[in-house]
């Protein structure tokens, strides 16, 4: 276990060295992502100039939900960046072979050997939104809230990783570079707004089938004191354990399929 922690840190420091080597392209690289996040925020802001609330949520509450969503997903994309082109890189191009000849858990190696730094700009925007919302909202944000926030983010990262992993594990069977990543990841857009605005079916899907709502929306309601979602907060740790386990089992199944059939 300590070996893996050490290795993870080693990979991380290698990646930081890489960023430092290309400082300029790092700064240029994060700009598009910041721009991309700005458009929806401006739109939310513009809309609230015309109306006082959306589905009972005020401007600052929506900002808080949206900001937490940005941070969670950006964190997920930073940590699981190597899954994004898994099918092409590891299966079609065969990089998985080079990992399977190392004395290391292959999934660990794939996750640890790639970070994306472009989302750091997004995280900053997300944090700005959260801070602004906390200042303007009549809520007190104490140490316990910080701990809870940390826990929710970690939990969210696990759920995000699990969903991502399931989406790419399909590649083992389809032998196609795409997997289901792009359509499934689109669904996360739903969870960046209050789930109460959607119809029942969509709410059910993003809560229990592809549980994006547990990554950002439900945790956000904890802080803005929306009592009606408390029961979901209780489900949160269970989702955070069960989904990663299912995803890992599926991954192992895919891997054994790979071992028996190759590419």
């Amino acid at each position: 276990m300590t070996h893996y922690v050490e290795l993870y840190l080693c990979f991380l420091s290698q990646h930081l060295k890489k960023i430092l080597e290309y400082k300029l392209s790092f700064f240029i690289g994060i700009i598009p992502f910041i721009l991309l996040q700005l458009a929806p925020i401006i739109i939310i802001w513009a809309v609230f100039e015309k109306i006082p609330h959306i589905a009972g949520f005020s401007f600052d509450e929506i900002l808080f939900i949206y900001g937490l969503g940005i941070v969670s997903y950006a964190l997920g994309r930073i940590l699981f960046s190597n899954l994004s082109d898994f099918g092409y890189r590891y299966i079609i191009k065969g990089e998985l072979d080079t990992i399977l000849v190392k004395p290391i858990n292959p999934l660990f190696y794939i996750l640890a050997s790639g970070f994306s730094e472009k989302e750091i700009g997004e995280i900053m925007i997300g944090i700005i939104l959260i801070v602004k919302a906390i200042i303007d909202l009549p809520i007190h944000f104490g140490i316990l809230d910080f701990l809870a926030l940390g826990y929710f983010l970690i939990n969210g990262v696990f759920v995000y990783g699990a969903i991502n992993l399931m989406a790419i594990t399909v590649c083992f069977w389809t032998k196609d570079p795409r997997g289901l990543t792009s359509p499934i990841m689109r669904i996360q857009e739903f969870s960046q707004y209050p789930v109460t605005i959607y119809g029942k079916a969509i709410r059910f899907i993003i809560t229990w089938i592809i549980p994006f709502a547990f990554i950002s929306f439900f945790p956000a309601t904890f802080f803005i004191h929306r009592g009606e979602f408390t029961r979901y907060i209780f489900c949160l740790p269970i989702i955070g354990v069960i989904f990663p386990i299912i995803a890992y089992l599926l991954w192992l199944k895919g891997l054994s399929k790979y071992e028996s059939s190759g590419t």
Binding site: K18, Y22, G94, E95, D97, T98, L100, V101, P103, N105
Partner: peptide, 23 residues
């Protein structure tokens, strides 16, 4: 015994690099 076995082998794939491109 992949984990223990692979500790005892060295593998070079001519068409796939194991080195870090940028570093």
């Amino acid at each position: 015994h992949r984990k223990r076995y692979t500790r005892n082998i060295g593998v070079v794939f001519g068409q796939r690099s194991q080195l870090w491109w940028d570093l």
